[in-house]
Amino acid sequence: MLECTACRAALPPDVLAGQVPARCPRCEAWLEISVFPALFRPLAAGEAGQAVLSDGESACFYHPRKRAVVPCESCGRFLCALCDVNFNDRHTCAPCLESARGRGAFPALETRRTRHDQIAMALAIYPLLLFIYPSLVTAPVALFLSIRAWRAPGSLVHGTKVRCVLAMLLATAEIVAWILLINLFITRLRTAR
C-alpha cells in the first residue's frame, strides 16, 4: 500500500480520510497524497499454459509439454500462453523482443540514448573556455561527430538539430582559424629567413 516518502513507514488508510495534506503518524511529515484506482486493483494474473493432451497438438518451442497458442510474429516459433509476450499488439517470444529492443526497433522499450550532438557541442565549446590549444584536435573531432550525429538517433524529447548545426559552425570556424594561424606563422617564418 502507501508508504511515507520521508520515513518509509506504511501509512494507515485513515491518512486518506483527513484533510489534505495528511500527516505521517510516525515521522509527522506533511504529505499531499493523490490516490488512483490502480492502487486497489490486483495485478493481472499470468497464464501458465495448458498441457498438451494429444500427440497431434502443436507444442511450445520452449516448453514441449505445453500447448502452443500462437506463433511468434518475428521468428515463427510456436509459443504457449506463458511464453507469448503481447507487446504493441504483436505476439512475440521473449528472445525476439530482447533482440528487437537491442536493435532499437521498439522506441517504447528504449531506456537510454547517447546524445552525440551534445558531445560534439562540448568538444567545440569547452576547449575555448579552458585552453585554446586542445581545439586543434577537438575541432575536427567535433565536426566529425556533429556530421555523424546528424543521422544518428537524437534525443527522444528534443527533436531539434540546433546543437548539431552550432557544433558544425563552431568547429568549422575553429578549424579555419587554426589554418589561418598556421599559415600566418609559416609566412612569418619564411619572411624571417
Binding site: P21, W30, E32, S34, R113, R115, H116, L156, V157
Partner: peptide
C-alpha cells in the same frame, strides 16, 4: 509519463503508464 534523466551525455528514460499510476505523493 516519460522521466528523462540526463547523466553526462546519456539520456535515461523511464516510462510510467497512466493506467499503472497508483499514487502521487508530494511532501513539502
Amino acid at each position: 509519463l516519460l522521466l528523462v534523466e540526463l547523466r553526462g551525455f546519456t539520456e535515461m528514460y523511464r516510462r510510467f503508464y497512466f493506467r499503472d499510476v497508483q499514487a502521487i505523493i508530494i511532501r513539502p
